[in-house]
């Protein structure tokens, strides 16, 4: 059931409600081949093969310390990695777990700074305003980052990544510090933006349900190796956890991550399903 990954063929990722932008390059936006990373004695990545097609939304799942952030950092160009192991074509942008905004620059300037290398001042300002409008924060342009809520700050961070029009957007657990409701809104926002811009996204997460809900392809990283891969063409609206294939994938992914299912309560009567004693005193009130 848990299929070990082979180096993914680049052009096989056409899915139900995604697909590359018509103008996008045909080849993959990123190819990772036999990629190894070692910090001292510890080998964090032990031969990773991964290819990301234009417009593909890939979730990289793993426990803390499995090497998923290391892989992302290599793709983002934040670490020195051999070019033959990690090849990225086109522009990348990163949104981190923390918003990492410059607190001494107003929101608008924070987004403009991502464009510092290109365009004239007016063009940068125009694009930053547009990006902020896209994440629904046009009216917070002049705010200081420290005055934003956690969700707002994370949306500014997303706008800052989007404003450069990346071919590959790298999201490093960007929702994990948000409360549950804000997280749902952020999921919807990311999908909306992705549908509109059609960039490839690599979403690093440790949330299985988030990965299942958002990604075309879920890649499980375990102890420096890809241990499981799952692709789906199901529309995102039809990925309820009750659906057999989603439930099966969820079970497989959890298994690949080493999470064992909870055994049934041995006290429960196997026929009636009742517990031997009423243990919930408020039950009579209902």
């Amino acid at each position: 059931m848990a299929r070990l990954s082979t180096p993914a063929a680049p052009r096989t990722s056409v899915t139900a409600d995604s697909g590359p932008h018509p103008d996008a390059p045909v080849g993959p936006v990123a190819v990772v081949a036999s990629h190894r990373r070692r910090f001292g004695e510890r080998e964090v990545l032990r031969g990773i093969d991964l290819s990301i097609a234009p417009g593909e939304l890939v979730a990289l799942l793993g426990r803390s310390g499995c090497g998923k952030s290391t892989l992302l950092r290599g793709l983002a160009g934040l670490d020195d990695v051999p070019r033959e192991e990690v090849r990225v074509t086109g522009r990348t942008a990163v949104a981190f777990q923390e918003p990492r905004l410059l607190p001494w620059q107003r929101v608008q300037r924070n987004v403009e700074l991502a464009l510092l290398a290109e365009g004239d001042r007016r063009d940068r300002a125009r694009r930053a305003t547009a990006a902020l409008a896209e994440v629904g924060l046009a009216e917070r342009c002049d705010a200081w980052p420290l005055h934003l809520s956690g969700g707002q700050a994370q949306r500014v961070s997303l706008a800052r990544a989007l404003v450069v029009e990346p071919e590959l957007l790298l999201l490093d657990e960007p929702f994990s510090a948000l409360d549950a409701l804000t997280r749902i809104e952020m999921h919807q926002l990311v999908i909306e933006l992705w549908r509109k811009h059609r960039m490839a996204i690599l979403l690093v997460t440790h949330d299985v349900d988030e990965a299942l809900a958002l990604a075309d392809r879920v890649v499980v990283l375990d102890q420096g190796l890809i241990s499981y891969e799952w692709r789906t063409e199901l529309p995102r609206t039809e990925r309820s956890p009750e659906r057999p294939e989603v439930a099966a994938a969820r079970a497989d992914i959890l298994h690949a991550l080493g999470v064992r299912p909870l055994p049934p309560n041995p006290d429960r009567d196997p026929v009636t399903g009742r517990l031997p004693h009423p243990t919930n005193p408020t039950r009579s009130n209902r």
């Binding site: 934040l78 923390e98 990492r100 905004l101 410059l102 700074l113 510092l116 290398a117 450069v164």
Partner: peptide, 27 residues
């Protein structure tokens, strides 16, 4: 360091990182 790293990921040059991250951060 996290903000400095974000600046690196935005491809800011060394001088730009000093100008926009290091010096204001030291204020």
């Amino acid at each position: 360091r996290k903000i400095a790293e974000a600046a690196t990921s935005m491809r800011l040059s060394r001088w730009q990182r000093i100008r926009y991250v290091v010096l204001p951060g030291a204020m």
